[in-house]
Design a protein around this nucleic acid. Structure first.
Lengths: 367, 367
DNA sequence: AGGATTCTTGCAACCGGTTGCAAGAGCGAG
DNA sequence: CTCGCTCTTGCAACCGGTTGCAAGAATCCT
């Protein structure tokens, strides 16, 4: 496999060989210069006389030369690759975040190496380890669940950016999402429409985002002098399926509710389906509101009211924060703010006698 | 930046230093052996005596040693990384495909390096070039539009797997999707429900998948002795927005139709919204059928009838085909077959007097 | 027991770019 | 015309694993 020790690399032929890319030294020989000169021309490290430059450039074109990334990475000690840990690459939420990350990295010549944690902490852990082993220049953990301690430990071997929590450590930067604030926004909207019995479907119970959103829900209830009823909280799984199940549980409990706040949009999609199956209309019988404002929420039937937190923007900012860390600068970025987007899945409480002034809702959508 | 020439690498301290990973030689010194021995133990290349093995393993643990991927890649001539070109990472379609690819690669220790072509041929081209420059061991072009000639040219420098077309060249493998067959399935289903005026919303016009699905649509019409009417074909963009626009155009043309076949599920989502806006009910006024059977189609209102072509499975098979190519074997895989999944967005033609026997539709969903 | 095998292990030369150092070329000033 | 300066360019030593080769140790054979 090794062993290739051509004394004079095929002196007779000079064209590029298929499937075997040229090396710096081959190009150098062709142009009659040394390898270092070629390297310097490619990287623009120092000035090179015009004649040589032209000759070298011709040789580069002739052999279609591309510097070997592994060799360059080895010499420079960096790979221009950032590891990204998501939970699932197929998921509107992570998809949008990854798009933002990719866009943010590409601007400066970096590329993301993406791995999926499959919602399992052990997998997430394995991902980070494998990414480090692959020599990435940094790791972005997007909405992950790894413990703070683990993250701090990993930050010792590679810069880390983490979204969805607040954590301070050297070479680690965190972007905190306004989970509680967004949840408060959602519940206030429902209260404003006259709802008093507002159910909540949470995500997996120990996820930091879920905990915070529950907190925001409680705060908004307190604000409106509504007692918090734990029986109006059901547990989903961040996916449609969990939304269906949780909604059916809530309905089965016979506890009346006229509005439903879901921990994320996908859960809300499931909730809408479950309500439809039970012959309940959204928003006439039950108002439903989500969180994230996924792109597809605009196109749901009915279009979903949601709390917008631009995931794409969050991804892009994570990427920039990471590039700052890599360059040794201290990032100065925060997560984008949250914002209520009112569409057609929420409406006035049908129970109240008094007419609630209808919220302004655009005719087609409110993009 | 280089210059580091520690005569004796910090002989006093011996613990791992933060941010600076240990090298093979450091581990070797700690264990009192040579670097080659450590390498051989790690890779299991040859037998090593038990005592040394234990000492080395202890040293590896002590320094938390992970071999540098760049160096290994340089020495071995491969990176265990496969480049993947998608159009958009945030897109249920590509998301599912990428998940399959990741799963298929991970099984054998490979990881995907994903880049987005953003639906632009030039970007797609740039992606392939950058991936090659990064030294990936192969490139999977997932549902791309690069010309056959370009692909063949690239296959000279790196193995290539391409989905969605049929192409033969050395070190290139293609997985052909049954686009036409799937489209025929969809239209036959509609015909079976009594529909005769069946509209079609295509994707971007020059995309191979779109062309093939149109062909299948025409074939099924011919089969049922229905004349093909080009005015019943509208152009979308593979996304919800295009589905909305195309549907509004079809409705504005005043040409009656009772069923609508959409080139993919996202287009169908948009179509459903547009119909809803115009006060038309799916499936009572118009039947809608999609293509792809995205996971979220199960949770639409109403759940969408679609032609299932397991994208995830396609991704996984692409990955396996690529690994075959890399290993020098000839892949023997084909794309997964298509299959009709009947849900609730299609129903009997409301216009026909005769009652059409209702298709069997499960109560909740037909996963 | 002596010689022939086989096994273990280290040395050193790779893989392909990068870069400090110094030699040589080119140029201006005295 | 010579000295000293700057600019261009090549040499060689890295980066950190891998592996052919051969020396030495261990094992087996007659």
């Amino acid at each position: 496999m090794k062993k290739s020790k051509f004394p004079a690399p095929t002196p007779g032929k000079s064209g590029p060989r298929p499937g075997q890319s040229a090396t710096l030294r081959i190009v150098a020989r062709e142009a009659g210069v040394s390898a270092s000169t070629v390297s310097r021309i490619i990287n623009g490290t120092v000035n090179v006389s015009d004649g040589l430059k032209r000759a070298v450039e011709a040789a580069i074109v002739k052999f279609d030369f591309r510097p070997n990334a592994a060799a360059r990475g080895l010499a420079l000690g960096r790979t221009s690759t950032i590891g990204v840990v998501a939970q699932a690459i197929d998921s509107p939420f992570y998809g949008e975040g990854l798009r933002g990350i990719e866009a943010g990295l590409r601007q400066r010549g970096y590329a993301p190496l993406i791995m999926s944690g499959n919602w399992r902490i052990e997998d997430e852990d394995r991902c980070v380890q494998e990414l480090i082993a692959r020599g990435v220049d940094g790791v972005i953990v997007f909405a992950g669940r790894l413990s703070d301690a683990k993250l701090k430990a990993y930050a010792k071997s590679v810069p880390i950016v983490i979204t969805g929590r607040s954590l301070r450590a050297p070479r680690l930067y965190s972007l905190l999402i306004e989970d509680a604030g967004g949840a408060t926004l959602a519940v206030r909207h429902l209260v404003g429409l006259g709802h008093r019995q507002i159910a909540f479907i949470t995500g997996s119970e120990n996820h930091p985002d879920a905990i915070e959103r529950l907190r925001g829900y409680k705060e908004a209830l307190a604000e409106a002098d509504i007692d918090f009823n734990p029986k109006l909280v059901a547990v989903g799984d961040w996916h449609e399926e969990g939304g269906v199940r949780a909604t059916l549980e809530l309905l089965a409990s016979k506890l009346p509710f006229t509005a439903l706040f879901c921990v994320n949009d996908q859960t809300a999609y499931g909730a809408c389906l479950a309500l439809y199956r039970q012959g309940l209309s959204v928003p006439h019988d039950v108002s439903v509101i989500g969180f994230d404002d996924l792109p597809s929420s605009t196109y749901r039937l009915p279009p979903l009211t949601s709390v917008r937190q631009s995931i794409g923007e969050l991804g892009e900012r994570s990427a920039h924060a990471m590039l700052d860390l890599v360059a040794g600068r201290r990032p100065r970025l925060v997560a984008p703010g949250v914002e209520l987007v009112v569409r057609e899945s929420t409406g006035p409480n049908p129970g109240t006698g008094r007419k609630v002034p209808s919220a302004k809702r655009p005719a087609h959508d409110s993009k």
